[in-house]
Design a protein around this nucleic acid. Structure first.
Lengths: 348, 348
DNA sequence: CTGAAAGCGCTTACAG
DNA sequence: CTGAAAGCGCTTACAG
């Protein structure tokens, strides 16, 4: 099944070939391809025809070398200790999808790299001119990479990140209003008549987004004169396995609860599993609400009520902000408002 | 929240700066960075020190322009009519993860693009020197892009695809032994005492992988003197919604069945939903088996028995084969053996 | 082992 | 509106 007969070398078509064929100078070819307005219409037509006939494409490297712009953005997706490729958070993959689309829309290419937080941080994507800027995606220990962000800034690297928006954040961040999302979840559970709400997910300031979700939920309870019980909170990173394990821990404590607010959909789905296994019914015995609005939430069993983040807007905003930075136009951090999708996991 | 104070332009460090600092010629710097053996150890040390001190990175475009190699591969993920980014098949995302890793291992970067089958096919990734070769990923109507593959080959473009391996396939394909996988699923359901197996997923030759899965299952039944009933097959592309809808159609036919073999995990999960909604118990009334081995199969409710494709090997093989093509070394199509993960959706 | 020099294929002032 | 020319930052024969 070898394919030797197809290995013929391509002879590269250059702008000089086009120039000859269109009987103009190479400079003019370049002007036409750059869409310069200072070209005679007829000349332009001839050049474009030659380009089509020879299937000419501008050499990206020659062009970038000359202009000092890569026309490419790099996406660095890092996750804590997730050795298994297949467990990449689907929420980030949704954003990845919309980022590729936004890049295409702006005529940029997208380089992707999935890294561990522990890896080298490849700031050299920009140093080596491979990319004009970086998009950073990933949950993880905030403190662990805070210093790396400062370092990137100091180097003058262009980057934006998805994450929790804080005042003292180095650089530009696009993120969800996690507090508002948490409040929605809490309010909804209250509306469903629940009073003892467990929270699954890290709720320390080291994980700012989860922490804000927790606090938002608590705020809703406090408005109703209630509060979250620390005994009903269990740490968990955003995986199904962690959600499953955390729910087990919660159950083992034998404290009564009638609802679970999970810091992510993955955690929620893992938790529903553990609850079901323990003979509890969702939502009759325990109502469950997730966070993210991933596609799988719609098809879990029962379908999961969840706080939806608009990934498609997220991707567009990330790319927009980064391109502004690259072009030296003012850009700023932004917060997206989430919405609540109510499904059977909370309302029978 | 604007960040004007950080917009200072970086002054690019070039190999000439390194040369000055290390008191050697620019050519020698280049030799050191290329790992040439013809450099004095002491000279090499001085250069490397200067490189470190100035945080120098080779300019990718200058290097690629000179060598005529991009050092980059491009991944084109296309799916039929999937307007919503978020519904990208998780199976492909798993492969994407392992492809990024394989690329990194070989010192290559990865450019990604998610396209509709209907879009232009961007063979120009290679024409414009942006990438040395293409990896094609996606289910879809076989006939619809068969001709595009032929076109790519004719242009001398380097590419590999993930898909069903057929004899008369243009180019190189890495894929799963879908027939063997289908047979495993069928045999397992027989072992579970099931006799009337429904198949959800397109089973025509236009969708070769699904078709082979169907035939593999049928082969298992025939070995047992049984056969698949055409009345128990319903077409469906690989989405949860399609699986849900297909199961509804199946139920509406009111023909008895005691098992469902779904052509993909997504279809299976959607189908389990519809079955549960109709008051059927999985696996007591209907055993369900999926295909792919996606992470969500482990956490569906009940956990899904599924034919597992080794995505991590898949990514490695795709990248290996493509790099061979790029380097003009013989490469060939390959088939991966799937395995069966038995879970509660088929065995009570 | 090292340096001087050519050249990869563009873009963009500069002249006209 | 168009062309001649310089130069982006490398790599790699060619000489020594």
């Amino acid at each position: 099944m070898t394919e030797p007969r197809h290995s013929r070398k391509k002879t590269r078509v250059t702008s000089l070939d086009i120039a000859h064929r269109a009987a103009v100078s190479q400079a003019t070819v370049s002007r036409v391809l750059a869409g310069s307005p200072l070209v005679n219409a007829e000349t332009k037509r001839r050049v474009e025809q030659a380009v089509r006939e020879l299937n000419y494409k501008v050499d990206r490297h020659a062009s970038s070398l000359r202009t000092q712009r890569a026309g490419t953005l790099a996406l660095l997706l890092f996750e804590d200790p997730t050795p298994d490729d297949s467990h990449i958070n689907p929420f980030f993959l949704s954003i990845l999808g919309s980022i590729t689309r936004a890049c295409a829309k702006h005529g940029h290419d997208l380089l992707v790299s999935f890294q561990q937080l522990s890896d080298d941080w490849h700031a050299d994507y920009e140093d080596s001119m491979k990319a004009d800027g970086l998009i950073l995606l990933g949950y993880g220990d905030y403190l662990a990479y805070q210093s790396k962000l400062v370092h990137l800034l100091a180097q003058g690297t262009h980057f934006v990140r998805w994450g929790h928006v804080l005042e003292d954040q180095p650089g530009i961040t696009i993120g969800c209003d996690n507090h508002a999302g948490g409040r929605m979840a809490g309010q909804h559970l209250l509306d469903c008549g629940r009073r003892q709400i467990a929270f699954l997910g890290d709720a320390s300031t080291r994980f700012p987004e989860f922490h804000a979700r927790y606090q938002g939920c608590e705020a809703a309870l406090q408005d109703a004169g209630l509060s979250m019980s620390p005994g009903l909170q269990v740490d968990a990173p955003s995986t199904e396995q962690a959600g499953y394990d955390a729910a087990k821990v919660l159950l083992a404590r034998k404290r009564p609860f009638d609802a679970v607010f999970a810091a992510s959909d993955l955690i929620a789905i893992g938790a529903m599993h553990a609850l079901t296994e323990a003979g509890l019914r969702v939502p009759e015995d325990v109502a469950v609400v997730g966070f993210d609005g991933t596609p799988m939430a719609r098809f879990s069993n029962p379908p999961l009520t969840t706080v939806v983040q608009d990934t498609s807007k997220a991707g567009a905003l990330l790319v927009d902000a980064l391109l502004r930075l690259v072009r030296d136009t003012p850009a700023q951090s932004q917060t997206l408002q989430p919405t609540l999708a109510i499904r059977a996991s909370s309302v029978g």
